[in-house]
Simulated assay, not measured.
Amino acid sequence: MAAPLLVLVPGLLCDDSVWQPQIAGLADRARCWVAPNDGHDSLPALAAELLRQAPAERFALAGHSMGGRIALEVMRQAPERVERLALLDTGWQPRAGGEAGEAERRQRLALLAVARESGMAGVALRWLPGMVRPAAHGTAVYAQMQAMVERRTPTQFAAQVQALLDRPDASDVLARIACPTLVLCGEQDQWSPPDRHTAMAALIHRSRLVLVPDCSHMSTLEQPAAVTAALADWLTAPC
Rank of each mutant, 00 (worst) to 15 (best):
H137F: 07
L203P: 11
R106M: 15
T155I: 08
W191C: 09
W191V: 07
S192N: 14
A113R: 10
E150R: 07
G101Y: 03
L164S: 02
Q107P: 05
E104Y: 14
R116G: 08
C185P: 04
L182Y: 09
E102G: 09
G138S: 00
E117P: 09
G91A: 05
M148T: 15
P180R: 00
I204L: 13
S118H: 08
F157N: 04
L88D: 00
V141S: 13
S192M: 10
F157P: 04
T181E: 02
T181I: 04
A121F: 14
M131A: 08
P129I: 12
V132Q: 01
L87E: 13
E99Q: 12
Q144K: 07
R176C: 07
V173P: 11
G97A: 14
Q162L: 13
L174G: 04
A201H: 01
M131T: 10
E117H: 07
H205G: 10
D166T: 00
R152D: 15
L164P: 00
E104F: 10
H137V: 06
Q146S: 09
L184N: 01
Q107M: 15
L165H: 02
W191I: 10
Q146W: 15
S192T: 15
L112D: 01
R206D: 00
Y142D: 08
L184G: 01
R116Q: 06
A175M: 11
V183T: 06
V132S: 01
A100D: 12
A199W: 15
C185Y: 09
V123Y: 10
P129G: 07
A96T: 03
L182F: 09
H197T: 05
R167V: 03
L109Q: 07
G122N: 01
H137G: 08
D195Y: 04
E117T: 06
V161I: 05
A100T: 14
D166K: 00
Q188V: 08
I204D: 03
A178R: 05
E104N: 05
H205P: 07
A115L: 14
L182W: 08
I177V: 01
R105W: 04
L125F: 13
R116N: 11
V161D: 03
T90W: 11
R116K: 05
M148K: 13
P168E: 01
A115G: 09
L112M: 03
E187Y: 01
D169C: 05
V141N: 14
A124T: 12
A115D: 12
V141K: 14
R206W: 02
D189R: 06
I177L: 02
I177M: 00
G138N: 02
E104A: 08
L111K: 04
R151D: 05
H197I: 07
A201S: 02
Q190S: 14
D89F: 09
Q144V: 05
C179S: 03
T90D: 09
A178V: 03
A103P: 09
L184T: 00
A96W: 05
A143K: 03
E102Y: 06
P134D: 01
H137Y: 11
A143T: 03
A158P: 15
P154L: 01
G91Y: 10
V149Y: 12
Q190N: 14
L164K: 00
Q107W: 12
R126Q: 05
M120C: 12
